[in-house]
């Protein structure tokens, strides 16, 4: 069964989070690299205080695809790992929860570096 309403929520929440990033770009002149760092830390903090979980449940990929969702995944990964294996989980949980995206970015990044050349504009 296709859940239309879910997709509307994904679109609206995902778009809104990106728009916050754009507002920062326009009005604060913060560089994109810094905005990415701000977003991931914000994600970790919101997830830690329990605000991001409900948003992710409400909007699915709309909340998990932006970089704040990456922070949320790191945070929840750490939380579950600590619950399962104690203090060591603080170190093992984050990266194992996000391993797919990171490994893919490293692998495809290197592969693209081999295969393609930068284009002039």
């Amino acid at each position: 069964m296709f859940d239309w309403l879910m997709y509307v929520k994904v679109f609206l929440v995902g778009g809104a989070i990106c728009t916050v990033g754009e507002l920062l770009v326009i009005f604060t002149k913060i560089t994109p690299a810094r905005i990415l760092v701000c977003f991931i830390i914000t994600g970790v903090v919101l997830s830690a205080v329990g605000l991001y979980g409900p948003l992710a449940a409400f909007a699915g990929a709309g909340a998990t695809t932006p970089l704040t969702g990456f922070g949320h995944a790191l945070c929840q990964g750490v939380k579950h790992a600590v619950e399962e294996s104690g203090l060591i989980g603080a170190f093992t949980g984050g990266l194992s929860a996000t391993a797919g995206g990171i490994a893919a970015a490293v692998f495809f990044g290197a592969l693209a570096g081999f295969l393609f050349k930068p284009h002039s504009k």
Partner: peptide, 16 residues
């Protein structure tokens, strides 16, 4: 703002 909203939203829809 509009452009970042609709493109960002669409990427999230694709992810979903």
């Amino acid at each position: 703002l509009l452009r970042s909203f609709w493109v960002g939203g669409l990427i999230c829809v694709l992810a979903q």
